[in-house]
Amino acid sequence: MTHQEITLTVNGCRLSAEVERRLSLADLLREEFGLTGTHLGCEHGVCGACTVLVDGVPSRSCLMLACASEGRHVVTIEGMRGPVADALREAFRESHALQCGFCTPGMLATAIDLIARKRASSEDEIRRELAGNLCRCTGYQGLVDAILSVGKRTDL
């Protein structure tokens, strides 16, 4: 039998599916659950486009197996909400932090986490933290500006 039933929480909802064991978490989210906001850019863990929050921390969904994600809490871009996520979206818009938008879901996941870990105190620090998310359109400047501005806020 090549299939397995798995259940996990995605964006706050308990979801189940019967899937091939080799299915990645990314493909589970995209193909089974229709949450296509998470994108596949390389399937070898380098580009970061597939980054989602798993049990609260950014993870490459292309490098996780669906069946190894049983019982986990996953948040995708469709479910990234709250004061920090909302502030980041607004800042991304105002700082022109996206152009084609393909890398944006992964950027948002990474940005939410680095703000939570208080790693947004300087441009250099933000750039190092963003090293795992590739963007081919923006040259990163708008992203850095956006994250810097949200990092400075004391009201979130």
Binding site: R30, G34, L35, T36, G37, T38, H39, L40, T76, I77, E78, R89, F92, R93, E94, H96, L98, C100, G101, F102, T104, P105, L108
Partner: peptide, 21 residues
Amino acid sequence: VLRHEDERLLAGTARFVADIR
């Protein structure tokens, strides 16, 4: 002017070719 494109891209509801079913 802020971009018209951003809202759907930031929401994750934009459809790239791999998202077409």
